[in-house]
Design a protein around this nucleic acid. Sequence first.
RNA 1: GGGGGCGUGGUGUAGCUGGUUAACACGCCGGCCUGUCAAGCCGGAGAUCGCGGGUUCAAGUCCCGUCGCUCCCG
Length: 397
Amino acid sequence: MTESAPLLRQAPGSSHQGGLSFQVEGRDPGSPARAGRLQTPRGTVPTPAFMPVGTYGAVKSVTPHELRETGTSILLGNTYHLYLRPGHEVIEGLGGLHRFMGWDGPILTDSGGFQIFSLSAMRAVTDQGAEFRSHLDGSLHLLTPEKAIEVQASLGSDIAMPLDECPPGGAARGAVEAAMRRTTAWARRCLERARSLREQRGAAPALFGIVQGGVHADLRREHAAAIVSLGFAGHAVGGVSVGEPPALIHEIGALTGPLLPEGSPRYMMGLGRPQDLIRLIGSGFDLFDCVMPTRNARNGTLFTSGGVIHIKNEAHRRDPRPLEEGCPCQACRGYSRAYLRHLFLSREILGHRLNTLHNLTHYHGLVRSAREAIVAGRFAAWSRQTLARLDAGDGDD
RNA sequence: GGGGGCGUGGUGUAGCUGGUUAACACGCCGGCCUGUCAAGCCGGAGAUCGCGGGUUCAAGUCCCGUCGCUCCCG
């Protein structure tokens, strides 16, 4: 973990790496898929990796200790939410987000760009930044690219995301192009602010660039080139699964993944279902985050290698079996589907916890299997078989 | 014994002075959820209105009887 041999040969601005290094340890001969190791000052992340979403400084219903048990190696936190509550300066005063929430592993923070998009009813975006109203109390705030970096730095984030503009799936081409230009301009400002912070304080988060471009192949190519040229420590694809036809998710991934540098991490933002992760790993992506395993757990949808289980369904009322035979999670080790169904229908918080632990364990197990398959040189077969099981089953086999 | 109130889908209730396919909540069944305003959202099944009779073009909605529950007075 102390070794710091940056492999960002393609990235000219290696001074922006913020203590990160990334090694590719295995490649699939038939696709861009690779297995790697992302080293951060707070620990190593074997890739492909899934990042549970801890918006408010907590992965809902579970503790950091339990997250470790599910296989979590890196978390996602959120600038927008923590800035509004309790306030980044409060967290900074208490020793930073890691100490505040009791998680000592790496944290990647989202910039708030997605909230500008998803809370669109209460915002106005200009070149200066995004002016928005708090969803908590209606107060007015201005989030600039510089501010986004400052907030993430004071949280103590290990990997910060630049402020970007994420147009909705149905956006007109012109709007997508405008969002790209703005995202590029903001990316430069974010890099500059990170550089100056590093000079002032001696430390600043590593920064990943974000590629926009909507559903247009030429725009994705153009923006990938623009962002890659700026020398980020890693690269993300944003603006995916924001309302466009689902089939395009994989097309965008297949096109854009290989356009990003091989020597640094590739992050597909906000994805996805297990099927999506498998395909995107096949397109060369290393990092993912998504609310799906945690939110769906609380809403009663549980993931297994045979497909999805709706735990509230009548079919599970008297089912003594675990969700998935052999799953190492707390829920599968100790409880029946019938009991989990009962907890869900009774709205017991234990149900939310067990369901969340199961879904995260399943997600981490999935990407770990992908990693092992890549290292073993059998990713193509693994991918085909795993997808086939998901497509065939309903989880109740 | 006398007087009053109530009986509407599984449960609890709406249904104004009678007028199209009886509403709501919860429950039940099913689905959705992709950089979390989300322990959330959407949909479906389910009552002919205690029972019998009457008035009326038309009754859950008025009248009579009856059964059940309930309150008050003896």
